[in-house]
Design a protein around this nucleic acid. Structure first.
Length: 773
DNA sequence: TCTGTCGCCCTTTTT
DNA sequence: GGGCGACAGA
């Protein structure tokens, strides 16, 4: 008898035993999804499926590693070795490396991270002489990203009158030109951005049938975890690969779809049954993770969503304690409460700090929590935020390494050509860029022939360029004989990184030196690790790892136990005995950016569902009445999500009713700790402050006392004024025409046809519309 | 060409 | 509160 099967419940066992054909596993939170996936793969192998023929796509590399380990414990190390497991991005980066020449890319292509992409787009916008207020680099990148994720290539864009018209209407007629130039520049630089890893894979599979056939034959069994968060581009890849054998197993939970902002399409999971009519459906509904209070409370929240699959999560676990709700005066107080509560619970129950987790909606919220934990002497680790590899000093060193691998990497070159300072300024770089564009060569190539072409660069500067070039060429030669660690050491030395920083002597510089040291150690670890595993230990492989790694992937096991701090997005798939969800306030959670349409609000609600279902034993929900945002103190109202939880599962640690309304109209900053330096504010800022105060007064005078808070962005000046036919402007969707208005009071909605964003129904209360015609 | 200061925008969320 | 680009002056 297969012992591992005995540990599964009926539903789980059926899913594991289903071998062939398309299947979907709808897995509720905490229902043992990972176990099922792991055992299913192990079981396939036990039945004689070659591990070489199994592809498993996970959401993080860490999840892949974890799963591989667990499979190995069932079937043995050697057997598990050939399994292809990883994120979409890392698996297809690997495939693209071996097929790159077909697409005209070098096999050691660079992977641009978001920062590289934004910088390149900024440069293009500047070169094209466009207004960067109208063409905001980040927004343009967002648009290009959405093109790529829906497989709209440059050619497709220019073939689509609709798309061009949309950008015209949004007063950004040059978006297509920027897109075209961006793609060309990436190509010339031998670089792919994150979205390219998927788009180019699609290109590869579509243009080269024999390549498609090769991978179809190879990946006879395909599994996709977190299917609810796949985008169109990923969806098409999976469909193509599974087309021959049809052995496709997707796992997901529509209630936990939280990545639509990066193109995830919840329809992929909702429509799976339509895509594969002979699909077998399995539902894992028993939750083993949480108390019944938590499960039921979470169910009561998600019930408010309209778009969902039919599923009932239940548990046999005991009720446990009620979910605690805590109101505090300020975000600082919130942090202190969390720290105190963690400390007490840890002491009273003799727990490891690993049992605690603090979740927030935005990274910037971590600050107040950190301060409080530090003061209490509680160890913590922050996941996400600015990752180690994004720090300036680290990116600079990595840029040197990137150029050694791929000299055409434009972004890396521009970063370091004058860092550390060697007298090569913006003017010179501009000249080089122009020459490079003119000759259709990379800047590195132009530098190689700097003697032979006349760039009107004076002799002194030319000399500096040549010195730089000589150093890079020397490093390049060395990199052929040295391993990644050795070459990184040489780079640090040659470029005088540490020397310069040590001369500086400031605390920041000291910490930078430490970071560089840590990077070198990291490279060393990487190499030893890879050599031990018999895997690729090259510099290319290291750089790829860095580009695609998330914080979790690099986590070390032997670390001291710590409290975990992270965004809710990052917490997907994890579980903790005690979970603190902080900042349950309107405009923060749900985010002010995501409450103008029903679907946005539903995604925020799913996010809350994810947060709550991380908890095994106890959950704390906290909100503050005032909070520093952008360095300013602002008032906050409790999140609507608190109202949505069935009251019977809640325990209020503070009285539920907020303080009497009258107090809400006194300027608190007069009495409480005023923002630092307020007395030294410049006249202009003071004026702005006075204006703010004046506006507050006006609001108080002109509105219903009970409903309106001081600085609530909920105030909508146009409520009631909007009628069909109005032209309106929305800060995210751009301009649009009002088609109709329905509902009244807080439910009043307008249906608007936006030029770029399509048709939307917006709640006027939140939409912050400006009537312009 | 370098350096320091000012002012703007920023904050959703991530591979 | 902070990071980054623009701008001015050396």
């Amino acid at each position: 008898m297969n012992s591992y099967l005995d540990s599964l419940n009926d539903a789980q066992k059926q899913a594991v035993l289903q071998k062939d054909g398309p299947m979907i596993i709808i897995a509720g939170a905490g229902s043992g999804k990972t176990r099922v996936l792991t055992y299913r793969i192990a079981h396939l192998m036990k039945q004689g499926v070659d591990s070489f023929n199994i592809l498993s796509l996970t959401f993080t590399n860490k999840a892949a590693k974890e799963m591989k380990k667990r499979i190995a414990s069932v079937v043995g190390d050697g057997e598990a070795k050939n399994l292809w497991m990883g994120t979409f991005h890392s698996v297809f980066a690997r495939i693209l490396r071996s097929e790159a020449d077909k697409l005209g890319f070098p096999s050691n292509f660079t992977i641009y991270d978001t920062q590289d992409s934004v910088r390149l787009i900024s440069a293009i916008i500047k070169e094209m002489g466009l207004d960067k207020e109208r063409y905001k680099p980040k927004q343009i990148l967002g648009r290009i990203s959405s093109f790529k994720n829906s497989l709209v290539t440059v050619r497709a864009y220019f073939n689509s009158a609709d798309m061009q018209e949309a950008d015209m209407h949004a007063s950004r007629p040059k978006v297509g030109e920027i897109y075209k130039e961006y793609v060309a520049r990436c190509f010339k630089a031998g670089a792919m951005d994150f979205d390219d890893l998927l788009l180019r894979t699609n290109e590869l599979l579509a243009r080269f049938p024999e390549t498609l056939a090769k991978y179809q034959n190879r990946f006879r069994y395909i599994m996709v975890d977190e299917y609810q968060d796949t985008n169109h581009s990923q969806y098409i890849i999976v469909r193509a690969l599974a087309d021959k054998f049809g052995n496709i197993c997707v796992v997901g939970d529509d209630s936990q779809s939280i990545y639509s902002f990066r193109g995830a399409n919840i329809q992929n999971i909702l429509n799976f049954q339509k895509d594969y009519p002979d699909v077998k459906t399995f539902k894992l509904e028993q939750n083993y993770r949480s108390t019944s209070n938590i499960v039921n409370a979470a169910n009561s929240i998600i019930a408010k969503n309209k778009t969902k699959l039919d599923k009932e999560v239940w548990t046999e676990n005991g009720a446990g304690e009620a979910i605690n709700v805590m109101r505090t005066i300020s975000d600082g107080e919130e942090g202190r409460f969390v720290a105190q509560s963690i400390w007490e619970n840890q002491m009273n129950n003799q727990l490891s700090l690993d049992s605690f987790c603090v979740l927030y909606r935005t990274n910037s919220q971590s600050r107040a929590i950190e301060d409080a934990l530090r003061k209490k002497g509680i160890d913590y680790k922050i996941y996400g935020g600015i990752s180690f590899y994004q720090r300036k000093e680290i990116k600079d060193i990595l840029s040197y390494l990137r150029i050694l691998i791929n000299p055409n990497d434009e972004e890396a070159l521009k970063r370091i050509i004058n860092y550390p300072a060697r007298g090569i300024g913006a003017t010179t770089i501009d000249k080089l860029t122009i020459a490079a564009n003119h000759y259709k060569k990379s800047i590195f190539d132009v530098l190689k022939y700097i003697d032979k072409i006349d760039l009107k660069i004076n002799a002194g500067t030319k000399n500096k360029l040549q010195n730089f070039m000589n150093m890079m060429l020397r490093l390049q030669i060395e990199s052929q004989t040295k391993n990644a660690f050795e070459i990184a050491e040489v780079v640090v030395k040659e470029a005088k990184f540490i020397k310069d920083l040590e001369k500086d002597g400031t605390p920041e510089a000291v910490s930078k030196v430490e970071n560089i040291q840590e990077l070198l150690n990291g490279i060393k670890d990487f190499i030893t690790d890879k050599i031990e595993q018999g895997e690729d230990a090259s510099l290319t492989s290291f750089l790829e790892d860095v580009a695609l790694a998330t914080d979790f992937d690099s986590e070390k096991k032997d670390d001291e136990p710590t409290v975990s701090l992270m965004t809710i997005h990052q917490s997907k798939g994890l579980e903790y005995l005690y979970v603190y969800v902080v900042g349950l306030e309107e405009n923060l959670f749900p985010s002010a950016m995501s409450m103008s349409t029903r679907s946005e609000l539903e995604e925020e609600r799913r996010l809350f569902y994810v947060a709550l279902t991380r908890a095994e034993k106890a959950a704390f929900l906290t909100y503050a009445q005032t909070r520093y945002r952008w360095g300013k103190l602002v008032d906050a109202e409790p999140s609507r999500f608190l109202e949505e939880i069935d009251d019977q599962y809640l325990h209020y640690l503070t009285p539920k009713a907020p303080e009497p309304a009258i107090n809400r109209f006194v300027d608190k900053s007069i009495f409480e700790d005023a923002p630092k330096g307020i007395r030294f504010q410049k006249p202009i800022q003071r004026k702005k402050m006075e204006r703010d105060v004046a506006q507050k007064k006006e609001i108080v005078v002109s509105s219903n006392l009970k409903k309106v808070s001081l600085v609530s962005p909920k105030m909508n000046l146009f409520d009631g004024d909007i009628i069909a036919g109005n032209i309106v402007e929305h800060n995210r969707f751009g301009t649009g025409t009002v088609l109709g208005v329905e509902g009244k009071g807080p439910d009043k909605k307008a249906e608007i046809q936006f030029a770029t964003a399509g048709k939307k129904k917006l709640l006027l209360q939140f939409a912050k519309l400006k009537v312009i015609g």
